[in-house]
Amino acid sequence: MQYDLQAITKQMRIDIVESVNAAGCGHPGGSLSAVDVIATLYFKHMNIDPANPRWADRDRFVLSKGHAAPALYAALAERGYFPREDLITLRKLDSYLQGHPNMNDTPGVDMSTGSLGQGLSAANGMALAGRLDGKDYYVYVLLGDGESQEGQVWEAAMSAAHYKLDHVIAFLDLNGLQIDGSNDEVMSLGDIAAKWRAFGWEVIELPDGNDCNEISVAITRAKATVGKPTMIICHTVKGKGVSFMENAVEWHGQAPKGELAERALADVHAL
């Protein structure tokens, strides 16, 4: 089945704004920057079966930057794991859509995340299990740039290279911003591509990490890489698609209210 990624990413951005608006809180900025990577995975590359979320042979996705849960939920809903109408229950007491993803609450979520820095290690474990079982599935994992300040990320980077995990394909959502400011204000990442290369990874850098075509080409290249893991560095725009949120640090972790909520919705509908 061929999906229209432009239509999908637009719908996911609408879903994100609607669900965060309904919750009255959450993380719109990092959700919007990650939409295109997540959409390209779930609607073009991943070998999955929404009717059988725990299918043993499926490809896996670990949202290491778990605060972008609204983007993951949007993809899962649009892909048919659960009804789209439920997205607006995000963060509500009776909902199965927790503020950060929990694999036991939400069909389609492959790993619980929320404490930054742990997702790549979990992805490595899934890939090691796949290798032991002679399975050919891929494990995709999305990290934030601020998240890359966590030491465990680099422990896991070493492990993936040591074990030659060529079925681990990572993405870095390089939007330049975190909570208290830009990466450079809070803790500079330095030459991040050189760092991943130095850790033994194949590195692909995408000047426009919000372009599904670029992302898709990179994934195909990564799958052809043998003997080492691949990091796809995506230069993205935080808040992508909502004019006043784009590249604005203050929209990391709050929902727009009142008139701003309506403007956000109008922006994504106009995409």
Partner: peptide, 11 residues
């Protein structure tokens, strides 16, 4: 966390 990933895949 790697052990967690292994367990999620049945190990």
């Amino acid at each position: 966390s790697t052990a967690a990933g292994l367990a999620s895949a049945g190990k």
